[in-house]
Design a protein around this nucleic acid. Structure first.
Lengths: 224, 224, 224, 224
DNA sequence: AATGAATGAGGTTTCATTCAT
DNA sequence: CATGAATGAAACCTCATTCAT
C-alpha cells in the first residue's frame, strides 16, 4: 500500500533503547497493555490498513512475532483495542447518574467533565474516530460496539431525561426518542479536532457547555 | 517493458494473446464520471487504502491503465471525488438562504430536505464518512474540505441565525458561536447509518426534524 | 519500470508547438529522419529500456501511433538508428585512405579529424555507447554492427598499416594482428566522456594525438 | 495488505495456501553474497532495467521479499555490486607495484595476469560493461566508480611509468598525461568479448601482450 | 496517413504472517 | 516464551502496442 505522501512518519529511531534479547521482567498483563497502547497510537495515526505491525512492535518494545502470542492477527489487535478501552467510562457514568442528587444541569456538567477527562482529552478519543473510520469494514466489531457502548450510552441519556422530567426540570420527550441528539456534539467535536484541530481547533468544553445550554432550554429547562 | 525477442528467457508466455475489444468511444466527461462513480463505490466500501484500483477500473468498465489517463494516481482520484461532489450542494443552499421569504422554521425544513435529497440519501453520504475516516491522513485534502465545504457551511448557518434574530423569531447567539451544533446531528446520522444502519437504522428525516424542534425551542423560537 | 531517481527528466513541456491535427507538409523521408533524431536523443539519454516512445514521439513532433507507421516496434527503431548513422563515415574514411598521398602520420591526423568531426563530437557518439550498453541484448544487431562497421573499420586500419610498412615508415605487424589496439582509445574516449565528462572531461583530440605519437613510435616510426 | 475477512469480496482465493519451506538458515554474509552473485548474473544478462528482481531472487534461492532485507531497492543492489567487486583488485595491484623488484616489462606482465585472473576472465568483467552501459543513468554511482576505481587505477599507471623512468627503462611522459591510453585495450577487450565473443572471440592475454609490446616500444623501452 | 485514447501484461515494492532458533 | 529473518501474495503504476476515428 502506498502511504499518503503527506504522511511523513517519524523516521524509524523512535526513542527506543537498542533492544537485544528478550524484554526484561514484565508480566503478561503489562506486556499486553503496552502492545495495546502502541497499537492505539499507530492505528490512530495511520488507520487500520495504514498501521504497520512492525511499528506497533517497535513502539511496544517487543519483537514482531511476540504480537502474535497476544493477538491472533491484526484484526484481533484492533478488536482488543476497542473492547478494552470504552466500557469502563460507561460503567462509571452509570453509577453517577444513579446516585447523583443535584439538578439535571449539574448532572450534565458532571458528565461533560467525565467525558472530557476520560475520553475527549485522552488518546482514547482516537478510538471514536477509528471506529467511525473502520467500522463499516468490521461489521462484527461495529455490532459489538453498538451493543456494549452505544446502546448503553443511549440508555443512560434516556435515564437522565426521565430523571429530569420526574424532577420537573424539563418537559420534552424528544431526547428520549432520539438520544443521539444529546451526544452528537461530542462525536462531532472529536471528529473536528482530528481533522481540523491543527489549524482551527475547537474548544471541547466550551462547545459542550454551549450545547448543554441550548438543549436544556430546548427541553423546557426550569430551575426547581 | 517488452524485452527484446532475441532475449530468450525461461518462459515465453505467448506474446500474441487475444486482445479484448476496447470500450466503445465515450464522451470524455462521461467516462470521467463513470470512473468517479466507481471510485466512490469502492472507496466507500473498503476505505482509501483498502480499495483496489483494479476493482475501480472493472466497475467503471475500463482498463486499469485508463484510470491514469484521468487521474494521476490513487490520491488524485480520491481528491477528485471530494472536489466534485460536495461543493454544488452548498452553492444551492446558499442561494436558498439568500432568497427565502418564509420563517426560519420553514427555511430549516427546506434545507433539511435539500440535505436529505442531495447528500444523506445518496451515495454521496459515503463521502462524508470517507472524509472523516481518511481526513487525518490527507491533511491537504482536509484543509481543502475545511475551506471549501466546512467554513462555507458554517457561514451559512450563521446567516440563517442572523436572519432569524433579525426577524424576531429567535434570540440566542449560541449557534453563531458554535454553528457546528446545528449541523452535528446530520453528521452523526450519516455515521450512524453507515455503521449500524444494517440492524438499527436511523430515520434521518425524523431525526433531523426532532433536532429542528429542539434547537428552535432552544433558541427561543417565537412565531411572528 | 522505475527510472533512476537521479534521472531528472525535463518536465514534459518540451518546447513544442501545441500540435493539433496532423503534421503540416513534411515528406516521408523528412519525418523518418526527425523520428530517428528524436530516438537518438532519447535512447542516448535513457538507454533502450529507459527511453519512452511517448517522449520520442513528442520530441519528433508526431503522434505515438505514427512511430509504428515507420518502425514496426521499439527494437526496429533502435536498429534503424544504428544502421542509418554509422556506415557513411566509414565510406568516407575508406576513400581517404585509398587516395591520400602523404605520410602515415599525416593520414592518421586526417582520420582523427574525421572521427572527431563526424562522430566523437556529434550526437552520434552516443550510438557507440548505446551499442556497448545494449549490444549483448541485441545479438543480431551486434552481428550487423560487427559486419558493417567493425570489420570494415579494422580492415581500414590494416590497410593503413600495410601502407605505412610499404612506405618504410613503420615496421611492426602488431596492429595488423590486433587492429583494435589502434582504435581502442577512441572507444574509451567516448565512454569516458559519457560517464565522467561532466566533472572530469577528457580532451578527445589531445588524447588521440598522444595516442598517435605513442603508437607511431611503438611501430618504429621513421620519417622518410 | 490483508483485508478484513468480514469484508466479503468477489474472489476469496483460499487464504490458507500451502506454504513452502523456507531456506535453511544461512550465514548473513553468505546469503548477501549469493544475492549479489545472482544479481551480477541477471544484471549482466539483461541490463539494469531489464533484469527482474524476481529472477534475481529465484537465482539466489530466496524469496523476493528477502532481497529487501539486504538491499533497500533495485538501485542499492546495483550499487552494492559495484562497490563490492572492484576495489579489492586495485588494492592488490597497488601492493604489487609498491613492492615489485623486477623490470617494468615484468611488472606489466604481472598486472596483466592479475587483471585477467581477477577481472577479465571472471563474471566481474560484466561489471565493467555494466558500468559503461548504465553509468550515465546513475551519476552518483559513476562518481563513486570514478573516485574509487578509475582515479586510483590511473594513479597506479602513473606510478608504474614514473618507476620505469626512474629505472631508466622508458623515457616518455605521454602515459603520465594520459594514463587511459594504457588501460584502454583492457576496456575494449571486455566490451569486444561481451558483444562479439560468441562468433569472433578476442584472446585477451595475447591482445594485452601485444599492447604491452607496442607501448613499451612506444615509450622508448630499453632493457637495463 | 495520422492520431491519441485505451489497453493490460508485467515489474517493483510492501507488509502481515510464520517458524527455526 | 520471545525473537526477527524469511516468505510471497497483492497492490500500484508504467508504457509498448493497438485501433477506431
Amino acid at each position: 500500500m502506498a502511504r499518503s505522501p503527506s504522511d511523513a512518519r517519524e523516521t524509524q529511531p523512535e526513542p527506543q533503547a537498542p533492544r537485544r534479547r528478550r524484554a526484561p521482567a514484565m508480566d503478561k498483563g503489562e506486556r499486553r497493555r503496552s502492545i495495546l497502547d502502541a497499537a492505539l497510537a499507530e492505528f490512530s495515526a495511520h488507520g487500520f490498513a495504514g498501521a504497520r505491525l512492525d511499528d506497533v512492535a517497535r513502539r511496544a518494545g517487543v519483537a514482531k512475532g511476540t504480537l502474535y502470542l497476544y493477538f491472533s492477527d491484526k484484526e484481533a489487535l484492533f478488536r482488543g483495542l476497542v473492547e478494552e478501552n470504552l466500557s469502563p467510562v460507561l460503567v462509571d457514568a452509570g453509577g453517577m447518574v444513579a446516585l447523583f442528587p443535584g439538578t439535571t444541569r449539574e448532572l450534565l456538567d458532571l458528565l461533560i467533565e467525565l467525558l472530557a477527562q476520560r475520553v475527549l482529552e485522552t488518546p482514547a478519543q482516537a478510538l471514536v474516530r477509528l471506529m467511525i473510520a473502520e467500522g463499516p469494514r468490521f461489521p462484527e466489531l461495529a455490532a459489538y460496539y453498538h451493543r456494549e457502548v452505544v446502546v448503553r450510552g443511549l440508555a443512560l441519556i434516556r435515564a437522565i431525561v426521565s430523571r429530569g422530567i420526574a424532577r420537573g426540570e424539563i418537559d420534552s420527550d424528544i431526547p428520549a426518542r432520539f438520544p443521539q441528539l444529546v451526544i452528537a456534539p461530542a462525536i462531532v467535536a472529536v471528529v473536528w479536532n482530528s481533522m481540523f484541530g491543527a489549524f482551527d481547533p475547537l474548544d471541547v468544553r466550551q462547545f459542550l457547555a454551549a450545547h448543554r445550554d441550548m438543549i436544556l432550554r430546548g427541553l423546557g429547562w426550569r430551575e426547581t
